[in-house]
């Protein structure tokens, strides 16, 4: 199956930061969640895909072609929501909508009004009177109203209350349910991804740690909890067992990518489900001693 999005060994360097040699692909019908701490390269990745910045090396293909070759037709098939609202805020929402719709060949007013009503957005208020969450919902409505095949969202749920977050996540899941469209979603709120993502991409200070199916990530990595003596024993045996850990006067907690070996060698040590939050914490910070 032809991927909707394919990055091959993409590198982009700024002063003090490099997104290093990133390769990933996203096929139709899936949600790829991108996680990583601040400054890990999530927004840079999205800006590269959206052609807002150019890669130093490597190639980016969307729908089997490059943005340089078919910029307008490629963007016609992308819906986007950025981490900050990019809107003329002095105008009414429908004025802004009319401005945006002229650019898309498959704009669907009915879809837009459906989302607009679903999000309970006011039509008689200028956009500057919208709350941050309302602006993000409005941007989401714009992104989903032109039958895009690829939806790219940069921290779309960060300003939303839990109910609105849930609504948007359900909408995204419904949007890809026919198998033609895909979603690339960057967020700090990893519980959102645990709920809807099919693949997880972890970035760490510009380095691509992995892109794996979510279930594989949750199977492969486990949370290890034990005493300080256990930690010493594990570290003496092999540091490779622990991807990262924290310790305090009572014991330690860390993440392992070798749960079977830990279980065999240290049967008394507790292994628990590792959330994406913990995974991000321990994989992007080697050790933290408090």
């Amino acid at each position: 199956m032809e991927p909707l999005l394919e990055l091959n060994q993409v590198t982009k360097t700024f002063s003090g930061f490099t997104l290093n040699n990133l390769s990933l692909r996203l096929e139709p019908g899936f949600i790829l969640g991108c996680i990583g701490p601040n400054g890990s390269g999530k927004t840079t990745l999205i800006r590269l895909i959206m052609h807002l910045i150019q890669p130093d090396t490597g190639s980016i293909h969307l729908f089997g072609t490059s943005m340089d070759a078919q910029e307008r037709s490629v963007k016609d098939r992308i819906g986007f929501v950025y981490d900050e609202p990019c809107l003329y805020e002095d105008v009414l929402p429908f004025v802004m909508k009319n401005m945006v719709k002229q650019f898309y060949s498959r704009w669907d007013d009915q879809e837009f009004f459906r989302y607009f009503e679903l999000f309970e957005l006011p039509s008689d208020k200028a956009l500057k009177h919208f709350s941050q969450g309302m602006k993000m919902k409005y941007m989401t409505a714009l992104a989903l109203s032109h039958h895009a095949q690829l939806i790219i969202l940069d921290e779309p749920t960060s300003g939303l209350d839990p109910v609105s977050r849930h609504e948007i996540l359900e909408l995204l899941q419904a949007y890809i349910s026919d198998g033609d469209a895909s979603v690339l979603f960057s967020t700090h709120i990893t519980s959102d991804l645990e709920r809807i993502a099919d693949y997880i991409c972890l970035l760490d200070h510009g380095n691509h740690r992995f892109t794996l199916p979510k279930d594989e990530v949750l199977d492969r990595y486990k949370l290890v909890i034990g005493s300080l003596e256990d930690l010493a024993a594990i570290l003496q045996n092999s540091t490779a067992f622990l991807c990262g850990y924290t310790k305090n006067s009572f014991g330690f907690e860390g993440v392992t990518d070798a749960p079977e070996q830990i279980k065999n060698d240290f049967p008394h040590i507790a292994l628990e489900h590792c959330s994406l939050d913990n995974l991000m914490l321990y994989l992007t910070k080697r050790s933290l001693n408090i």
């Binding site: 959206m50 807002l52 910029e71 307008r72 963007k75 992308i78 986007f80 950025y82 990019c86 945006v100």
Partner: peptide, 18 residues
């Protein structure tokens, strides 16, 4: 200035245009 203030270049550069 209006476009700069509301970061509209980012929006329009992301829409189907060049």
């Amino acid at each position: 200035s209006y476009e700069g203030f509301y970061k509209m270049e980012k929006l329009f550069a992301s829409l189907p245009t060049t």
